[in-house]
Design a protein around this nucleic acid. Structure first.
Lengths: 104, 104
DNA sequence: AAAACATATCAAAAAAAATTGATTTGAGGG
DNA sequence: CCCTCAAATCAATTTTTTTTGATATGTTTT
């Protein structure tokens, strides 16, 4: 179950509406925390909490510049997520449509 | 925020370790509920709860056969999820690397 | 029609995640 | 240095999700 827990991390990052809204903002380019927070219903500490989850997932990377932190989408993070999604949801091989094990 | 909520649904399905374990079982072909439950640390009602979330997400489809319910991975569900993941995490266009808005 | 069975649903409890406000850390600027 | 500012962390609270046990629904078997 530990591997699943680890895999779940990327998707956990994606299953909160506020984090999806943050990602949408990042699609148009790198943004610093203060800019991200502005249009959103989030406190400073709330944004920081979500940014950490996004960074931990690998989907977002941060860059420090003086006292500002800038965030942007990570291409490799995206590719890994897609790979993982496919790995998890793609059948292993062509099989009969029917459940054979349950012949009771 | 409503659209994000709706999008989050697919990813919510993927962010629980037990549901990932269920998906893994389904990769090797259609299974009925009783078969899925067996190797997992889940009560009957617990499995039913998770199967509903997986089905609602579109990643899994179910087929009724007498008193048994059979579940399998959905190809279109998978494709939609990948499309959504890419849509959410891909930059809109090529832009400068730097955050221009935050020039304070 | 009654009994047995598979699964779904419900309500309550437990566990996990998100929010909030306060405090800390660390980088500049006077 | 001291002060200010951006962001991170912490502890307490609130909200959401998951689990559990009991009950309901619908199907097959006798």
């Amino acid at each position: 179950m530990e591997a699943y827990q680890e895999n779940a991390k990327v998707f956990k990052a994606l299953c909160d509406p506020k984090r999806l809204a943050i990602l949408e903002q990042l699609r148009s380019g790198e943004k610093c925390a203060c800019v991200l927070q502005e249009p959103m219903d989030l406190t400073q500490s709330g944004l920081s909490y979500h940014m950490r989850i996004l960074c931990d997932s690998g989907l977002v990377v941060s860059r420090q510049e003086g006292k500002w932190t800038h965030y942007r989408l990570s291409e490799s993070g995206r590719n890994n997520a897609v790979k993982l999604l496919l790995a998890i949801t793609t059948p292993v091989a062509e099989q009969g449509d029917r459940c054979l094990s349950c012949d009771r």
